[in-house]
Simulated scan of single mutants.
Amino acid sequence: MKNKFESLELGQFIPLHYHHNMLNDTIRMKGFREAINLVVKPGAKVLELGGGTGVQSFFAAQKAQKVYCVERNPELVGAARSFLAKNINGGKVEVIQADALHYLPPEPVDVVICEMLHTGLLREKQMPVIDSFKKRYWEKFGSPLPVFVPEASIQAIQPIEQNFHFEGFYAPTILFQDPRAIQERSKSLGNPDVFQVLSYAEPFSQTCHWDGEIIIAEDGQLNALRLITKNILAINMLTHSTVDWHTQYIIIPLSTPIAVSKGDHISIRFSYQGGAPLNALSDSLEVRLVSKRVPVLELALEALNYPSKFRSNTSQMHHH
């Protein structure tokens, strides 16, 4: 049974005013323009899945012979057609009202642009849309697959101590952070640890998961995790460099804070499907203290008080 609010969910039906905010994001716009200009060769055929206002199809049309721009939301379809008609080479773009999860172009394409991206690959449908596209494209046209923009996503998790007090009001809730800003309310307790490297041209699982440990680098109160998603928009083989774009960081509060010290080991486990709601990660999240660091002074005192025991332990450690 379908959720009656499905059409209102982000990733299903993003309203026009939200796209206006994306147009105003200079870092995002410059990144995609550079990546598309790099990947799209003169005379190429291009498909954009989830075209929104049509801006990325516009970037592609400056060099492409033909661009198919697929958008489900009728309001955005109208806006994209109107905007493209006012821009140079906009006539090369055919705006098609269809669901990107099921659409295939009438001919093979060289490049596929799909920016249905949200941090953690949550909420928006990047993973299911590209996976579905690849399977259907192979059946209809065979190989090779087109080049994808973005080409890859790298995901990491970081332990932090977050200030959840707002003018005296304590609210441990999911927060968003600008990746380019200094976060004075966040204290890093360890380095980010990569849990997923996803190349869209390669086979990939629809599940985002991790079961690992992080070493704490600073004393503090572990009460949240920072979720980081870095998208590799394009790879420049000539300069051996990449065009990157970070989506907003997400701060996920822990249900029970953990007092930690430098050197402690923290176990982190979670599993969720790409495109799932934000709470899919927090609902599956398990964080626990695995081992406490034993201070060097305590070890020294133990060695003085129980030398035979200490020699036995260290001997066993060397054998392992």
Rank of each mutant, 00 (worst) to 15 (best):
L189F: 01
Q196D: 12
L304H: 08
L278A: 09
P307A: 13
G43D: 10
N279W: 01
F83K: 06
S255C: 11
A276T: 01
A217Q: 13
R288V: 01
G142R: 07
L289W: 06
K30N: 10
V149H: 01
M116N: 13
E286F: 09
K134I: 12
L117Y: 00
F148P: 07
I160D: 02
I216Y: 07
G50Q: 04
C69L: 14
M127D: 01
G220E: 10
T26G: 07
H165A: 12
R288D: 04
N313Y: 10
F148I: 09
M116I: 05
A60W: 03
L278F: 05
P106T: 00
Q56E: 12
V287I: 14
I96R: 04
N73T: 00
G43F: 08
P257E: 15
V260Y: 12
P105Q: 00
E184Y: 14
E298G: 07
Q158V: 01
L198N: 07
E139I: 01
F133N: 10
T239M: 07
Y137G: 07
H209M: 11
M29I: 11
I235D: 08
G142T: 04
S271H: 04
V197I: 15
I252S: 10
L117N: 04
Q155C: 15
W245K: 03
L117D: 00
R81I: 05
I214F: 02
V290T: 10
F59I: 14
R293N: 11
A60D: 10
D211F: 03
Q273G: 06
G31D: 03
N279E: 12
D211A: 15
G190I: 00
A64K: 03
F204Q: 06
L145N: 09
N24Y: 02
P74V: 04
I251H: 03
S143A: 15
W138F: 12
L289I: 04
S188K: 08
V39M: 12
K86H: 12
R311Y: 05
L285P: 06
P307W: 14
Q56Y: 11
K45I: 03
L16F: 08
M1G: 11
E161H: 13
L101D: 08
F83I: 15
L227Q: 02
E124V: 05
H20R: 14
E286N: 13
A217V: 05
K41I: 02
S282V: 14
A152L: 03
S186H: 07
N191I: 00
S205D: 15
G43S: 12
R226W: 03
L38Q: 14
L233D: 00
F169A: 06
I266M: 11
P253W: 05
L198G: 00
A64Q: 02
F141T: 10
G54P: 09
E6R: 15
Y170R: 08
E202D: 14
G90C: 08
K45Y: 06
A64V: 05
A35Y: 09
K134F: 04
S143F: 10
H209L: 11
L285Q: 06
N37Y: 07
I235S: 14
L104T: 02
Q162L: 01
V296N: 07
F166D: 12
Y68V: 08
T229A: 11
F176A: 15
S284Y: 08
V260M: 14
